[in-house]
Design a binder for these strands. Structure first.
Lengths: 108, 108
DNA sequence: TTGACATTTCGATGATTGTCAAACTGAGGA
DNA sequence: TCCTCAGTTTGACAATCATCGAAATGTCAA
């Protein structure tokens, strides 16, 4: 699980083209294939700042174990970043990565 | 399997907004989750006209049975249209549907 | 009609996956 | 220290899925 993944662009100018490996493309496709994970993404995207895990727990009718699993999948695909602070975990949508994914699909 | 699905826009003007149900969104997500199906889509999108099934058969290292299965999944998701003429089947990418899918993902 | 060919359907199989309960870890308050 | 709370890990189970071989269907030409 130690592979290159698309990370948020780092001051490369305004119109950065984020590259994406076939591997990550596939990971994202699979991550989006579970409706529950899309819901989680939707919830996260609704907020300005990072979304606390607990919020998701209130919205999604799933066990903590399952939520944790989905969070890991989304992080692994590069779609979210998880900041851990003490007991808490906060999720941020990685819009760069999502955009790179969409760009690739759009070029079909 | 008798549900409303996004169909190619029919003379609604140049900037038609294609609607999409949650159900179809989910079907498309799942259809795209299999790398093999993405490859099939990529192959189809490379051609101007409809792609004969036989062409895919040459490109994709899978049995006819499996190819047929994937074709059905893509058709069911609305991503391709299959024209059957006698013995043959020709596939066309439904760009309207793909665009509608991308639009929805982009609005996250 | 007979045979060759394109595609589909059926049945089975191995792999992946979404889910949970239970046990675990780690942080912070009393 | 002890307890509670947030989140993770583990192990299990049922469901879904990609794949195949074999048999079936349907088309066309000889």
């Amino acid at each position: 699980m130690t592979e290159k993944r698309v990370r948020p662009a780092k001051r490369n100018g305004p119109a950065t083209r984020t590259e994406m490996t076939d591997r990550q493309f596939s990971l994202i496709s699979k991550a989006l294939a579970a409706p529950r994970r899309y819901e989680i993404l939707a919830e996260i995207s609704r907020r300005q700042c990072a979304t606390p895990c607990t919020c998701l727990s209130e919205t999604q009718p799933i066990s903590p174990a399952t939520l944790s699993h989905h969070m890991k999948e989304l992080e692994n695909a590069g779609l979210v970043r998880i900041e851990r602070q003490g007991k808490f975990a906060n999720l941020t949508l990685q819009r760069d990565v999502l955009r790179a994914y969409l760009d690739r699909l759009a070029s079909l």
